[in-house]
């Protein structure tokens, strides 16, 4: 009886579905988090009676056949890269991107990662860094005692140095775009890495070539929608229960079969 195995694939898929949903719900308040969605597809079919085969020598064709499916598989858990809502924080070092693109971050090993989480701060030497201490690209060093830290929509960073009244430009933040954002590898800490699926990073400036613009003193919230997640959770749980019932039914049928033998 294949039903046992088929139902088991269904239970495994719904188990994974709940896992994805629970991660989304757990990250509801994570800055710059993008929700994931489990996507499923049906498994191979056993063609017991193949459609279109001849049913007689007179050339009659079977209009329909018997296709026995063998369950479900998970094809992916892509991230849904829609815009999260912005909240005003009043902190000058909090940056949010409206539109497409990522901040470019250099990891300690010299490689680059990308993030939508713009809750930056300054380290001991005045460099702009992420909460983990990774340097935002290009390196922007804020001089001591400078005031009036400003980031404009294109990403130009300027401050008013001590003893001056005119702002000086410190540099221009890079906004990186990918042709396939869903193909980025999530490495935790709100960071993403380039993969062969994401395509080459396209470094650019805010507001140019399709990149989004930067909003200072704001943070992008996660794009998790609680109503969607909870209704998905209910659907996944019910589907899991139904698959479990199929296992029970197949089991009862097998035991009825075994009872025949005395």
């Amino acid at each position: 009886m294949n039903a046992l195995q088929t139902a088991a694939t269904g239970m495994a898929a719904q188990d994974l579905h709940v896992q994805v949903i629970s991660n989304n719900i757990a990250n509801m308040a994570t800055t710059g988090y993008k929700r994931q969605r489990a996507e499923f597809a049906d498994l191979l079919y056993e063609h017991v009676r193949r459609i279109g085969t001849q049913s007689s020598d007179q050339g009659n064709i079977l209009p329909v056949g018997i296709d026995l499916g063998s369950g479900v598989k998970t094809v992916g858990t892509p991230r849904i890269m829609t815009q999260g809502s912005l909240t005003q924080t009043g902190n000058a070092f909090d940056l949010a991107i409206t539109g497409e693109g990522f901040f470019k971050i250099q990891l300690p090993d010299g490689t680059f990662s990308y993030t939508r989480d713009g809750s930056f701060m300054l380290d001991g030497t005045g460099r702009m860094v992420t909460p983990q201490g990774y340097v935002v690209q290009p390196t922007i060093t804020v001089p001591q005692n400078a005031t009036g830290f400003t980031v404009n929509q294109q990403g130009q960073v300027s401050v008013i140095p001590v003893g001056s009244t005119t702002p000086t430009t410190l540099g221009q933040l890079i906004i990186t775009r990918f042709i396939n954002q869903a193909g980025l590898l999530s490495t935790g800490d709100n960071l993403f890495q380039e993969t062969p699926a994401s395509g080459q990073p396209q470094d650019g400036l805010g507001g140019t070539n399709g990149a989004g613009t930067i909003q200072q003193a704001s943070l992008e919230q996660s794009n998790v929608d609680s109503v969607t997640e909870i209704s998905d959770l209910i659907a996944a749980q019910r589907a899991y229960e139904m698959n479990a019932k199929v296992v029970t039914a197949a089991d009862q049928m097998l035991s009825a079969l075994i009872a025949l033998q005395r």
Binding site: A3, T6, T9, G10
Partner: peptide, 13 residues
């Protein structure tokens, strides 16, 4: 039952 179980396994496909 094989057919029904395949349908139920694909409830969210």
């Amino acid at each position: 039952l094989d057919i029904v179980s395949n349908n139920i396994a694909n409830l969210n496909t």
